[in-house]
C-alpha cells in the first residue's frame, strides 16, 4: 500500500501541475480528472474507501461534468488557446511561484515540528462514517443541505437570461 500512495501522490502532483498550466481548457480539465483519480487512490491507501468512491463519482464525475457542460455552452473557439498563451508569459509565473514556495516552506517547517507517527492503514467503513455523520454531525448535514439548496437557487437565479423571468 505504501508505494501505491507515493506513486499516486506523484501522479496527482504532476497532473495538477499540468492542469493549471495548460492553454486549452479541455486538456486542463482532463488533467484535473487524472489528479482527482490519483487523490482517490490516496484516499484508498489512507483507509477511506467510501471517500475514494465519492471522489470518483462526485468530483471526477459530477463536478467535472459541470465544467465540461459550461465549456460546451461557452463554445470557445480555437483562438482562445492563442489568447491563453498571450495571457501566460513566463514571467507571470514568477511571483505566484515564489509566494507559493514560501508558503510551502513555512508549512514544511510547521510539519517538521509534528512528530510523524505512522498512519494505521485500518479502513473506516461507511457504516462507521454514517453513524458519526448522522449522529454527532446531524446539524452539519442540515447546514450542508441548506448550503446546497442555496447554491441551487443562486445558480438558477444567476443563470437566467437577460430580460427573461
Amino acid at each position: 500500500m505504501v508505494p501505491i500512495f507515493y506513486v499516486s501522490a506523484a501522479v496527482a502532483f504532476l497532473a495538477t501541475a499540468l492542469a493549471i498550466s495548460r492553454a486549452n481548457v479541455v486538456h486542463g480539465l482532463l488533467d484535473l480528472i487524472v489528479s482527482l483519480l490519483a487523490v482517490a487512490v490516496m484516499f484508498l491507501t489512507l483507509g477511506a474507501p467510501f471517500l475514494a468512491a465519492l471522489e470518483v463519482i462526485i468530483y471526477a464525475g459530477a463536478i467535472m461534468v459541470l465544467f465540461v457542460f459550461v465549456m460546451m455552452l461557452l463554445n470557445l473557439g480555437p483562438q482562445t488557446v492563442e489568447q491563453e498563451r498571450r495571457w501566460l508569459p513566463p514571467r507571470a509565473w514568477i511571483t505566484p511561484f515564489v509566494l507559493a514556495a514560501v508558503l510551502l516552506v513555512e508549512v514544511v517547517v510547521v510539519l517538521g515540528g509534528v512528530d510523524g507517527p505512522a498512519l494505521a492503514g485500518e479502513a473506516i467503513d461507511p457504516r462507521q462514517l454514517g453513524t458519526v455523520l448522522f449522529g454527532r454531525y446531524a446539524i452539519g448535514v442540515e447546514l450542508a443541505s441548506m448550503l446546497l439548496l442555496a447554491g441551487v437557487v443562486g445558480a438558477a437565479h444567476l443563470g437566467r437570461r437577460e430580460g427573461g423571468a
Binding site: 500512495f5 487523490v39 490516496m42 514556495a101 508558503l103 514544511v108 509534528v114 485500518e122
Partner: peptide, 26 residues
Amino acid sequence: MAAVPMTHVLMVAAAIFGLGLVGVLV
C-alpha cells in the same frame, strides 16, 4: 500493514494546495 507517515501525507497535500494557489494567482 505498512503505513504512510502522517508528515508525508500532509506534505503532499501542501504541495497540491500550493499548485492550486499558483493556478489562482497566475
